[in-house]
Design a protein around this nucleic acid. Structure first.
Lengths: 232, 232
DNA sequence: CGGGTTCTTGACTAGTTTCAAGCAAAGTGG
DNA sequence: CCACTTTGCTTGAAACTAGTCAAGAACCCG
């Protein structure tokens, strides 16, 4: 998986990444990789598959904070902090690159460029959550759904996980609802309505962005964001 | 301002911080310190006063992403990224410590402990936004307001900006509404209702948490978070 | 072939927004 | 120093968005 969206690394960096790397693991869909309140001994990079971060209220209401795609760091917050503030769950079967959390310190100590990349990824993560907060706080239901589709489509597109105007979304509508702060029933109605406008199609987990311009108009969105990213 | 909530620094670190530091500035309330889409040459640390980060939709709807209190970094995202993804505005008169953005690289390069602290602050920032997203996405109006009061009170308390159970909140109800994703009118009604429960009082920008337990119960919240933090 | 998800839809309800109006406090300018 | 404007707070009534409840259909799994 050599994408030009990843920046080039120096030989010594690659060497460190190799040594930093602890191993690879597979996790089945539904696996909880990291739990809120716990101190995980590992850090991960998502190599393939989808995952998501979420928080829950005592009574069970769940807010999905973000979806994680290949290249995303998992558990960084927990390694800088003491305990994780959120839970991470695999949405599909997932391949992970595992790191030892203690070695993060070595990284900061000896590999400033990589440390910078880590900060970059953390910063990018916050940017994504900011964008979600804007959507959930200010957009109405239809706009929100349209926004989320565009957001996911753009990220997938960067990772070459799209085929033309189509993208595979492995989550259920419940996942969308929990991400958007909407009820399942209403999320469904909005999706149906969006399909009727002709902006998208939606069959069997395949989302087809038929009319991106229209979808953007519906989302009340202008944002575009395609910057190169580091790979760790 | 020597608080024990800040960690101790090594002499060489203090020296670098001094050299890293570019100067101090004052900004009046309402000043836009950093604009979305722009590349600011500076990074800031908030030394005193309140500020807030926000994003807007094309039609003017505004989502406040977080409030910034003394010790918080401003513009970190923009310095790691190319351009800022949000706007930062002073809520009160504000004292800032300014840094040259380019020197952030020197920091990562020569001061891994400080770089780690920067990552820590970035990570903490994301945690705060996560918490807000949970609130805006899942809590209903009354719970949200209660949550936000508790959140601000705790942060102020850590910074010793509270007096007993009272805290000065320099924002207007419009700011609260824009943070919570509620209309101004409804925010006001909810605040009135909260006062009636006896959980809080609210006079002239002074919020008095009369019954923290009750407020927590209303917020459907358990979260507490008082960890030591680095000062940069 | 059940039994369990996920999706779909409709009817009803409730939480929130919108609209509107009034009031108090704080500026502003003549 | 007094209109006059502006800003922020407060409240009520009406409208509407989204939630809740309920039930059926489609699909998958064992």
């Amino acid at each position: 998986m050599k994408l030009r969206i990843f920046r080039n690394f120096e030989p010594h960096e690659l060497e460190f990444i190799k040594s930093f790397k602890n191993g690879e693991e597979w996790a089945e869909p539904g696996t909880t990789m990291i739990s809120e309140g716990q101190t995980s001994p590992h850090l991960y990079t998502l190599l393939s598959g989808w995952a998501f971060r979420y928080k829950m209220l005592p009574d069970g209401r769940r807010q999905i904070l973000s979806f994680l795609l290949p290249g995303d760091f998992i558990g960084l917050q927990g390694s800088v902090f003491a305990e994780m503030q959120h839970t991470v769950e695999a949405l599909t079967k997932v391949r992970l690159c595992t790191f030892q959390r203690q070695r993060l310190w070595d990284l900061f100590n000896g590999y400033p460029d990589l440390a910078y990349d880590v900060a970059w990824l953390a910063s990018r993560g916050e940017g994504i959550v900011d964008e979600h907060l804007l959507a959930v706080g200010q957009r109405r239901a239809t706009e929100r759904v349209a926004y989320l589709i565009l957001h996911l489509f753009e990220r997938c597109s960067t990772l070459q996980m799209t085929v033309g105007t189509r993208m595979h979304f492995p989550g259920s509508q419940t996942h969308l609802a929990d991400m958007l702060g909407l009820s399942l029933a209403h999320t469904n109605k909005v999706i149906r309505a969006l399909i009727k406008t002709g902006a998208i199609r939606w069959d069997e987990n395949i989302v087809d962005v038929r009319d991106e311009g229209l979808l953007r108009k519906i989302a009340a969105s202008d944002q575009t964001d395609r910057r190169p990213r580091p790979l760790i």
